[in-house]
Amino acid sequence: MLNPTHELCSIPMPDQYFGMDDYGKGTPRWCPGCGGHSILASVQRVCKDLQYPPEKTVCVSGIGCSSRFPHYMGTYGFHGLHGRAFPVACGIKFRRPDLNVFAITGDGDCCSIGAGHWVHAIRYNMKMVVLLFDNGIYGLTKKQTSPTSPMGTLSNTHPAGSVLPPINPIQTTLGLANVSFVAQTTDWNSAHLYATIRKAADHPGLAFVRIVQRCPVFMRDLYGDIATNKDELILLSHQNGIDLKPSALQSFKHILEHDPSNIHKAREHAETEDGIPIGLFYQNTSSPRYDLYGAHNRGMNTTDKKWALESLLDQYTIRNN
């Protein structure tokens, strides 16, 4: 889409302006009321606001309802294997610093089958946005217990109620080596959702965002009337935190000042049982980044390569002429 104001306006404008349409593709096949719809809209808006060229943007996912995400984006996409979004996303980014990468994963995908990769992706800290769609259940395979299902969840694998306490993804991620950005938001507070993904996109490293997501089909009771009930959410607020307009702030009953540079406090808040804390738990913009290491010697020219190889072969050579 060409920018019609290009010749009329003195402010430098990009050659090509991307609108919301440029980031969409097809019709999402998620159930009505699924949190996926609003997350998709927020990501598309962030891409538009940052004017990410669609061809320079890659959405990578695993398998699950949530992992259908790339199919609905107008960017490049990689809908891979269950639990394996992280290795693929990291492999894409390693030698292509020019690409904007989103990794989309579900609670089973990230916290169960892909848990090993989760630990290491956090440690690699490569610049990308990770969105954990946490609906507390296995959606695609129809209601099996997930590692984040609250204890007692009635599911097809635990008809009498699940028997173990759930993994808390925020708490876990805050405990991992080289963690650099941890935030939590919900699918139903779209202002906060957008602002969180926007902040994540700016982060120089891996931004881990857990999105508390409703599954109206299998987990109808988990969040009940939460979208209208102001009691449950606790907003973590700070000048370095998620940037919310004052009008958006009004929708919160509980607001807690939290400095995202304080990892100890962040861990305390992550463990609270009083409600669902949302906001930026932790950010460190100077953690070592593996993508910078990966990109350091790209693009060597053919002549240099040939010369280097010949001199390497010299070390193994017995001259006979």
């Binding site: 990689f78 294997l81 290795p87 492999g91 390693f94 030698r95």
Partner: peptide
């Protein structure tokens, strides 16, 4: 990589990227 699965996944990511 952190394991063989991640090793090939990472390689596939890089191959996909060009």
């Amino acid at each position: 990589a952190e394991d063989e699965i991640a090793a090939i996944g990472f390689a596939i990511g890089a191959s996909f990227a060009g």
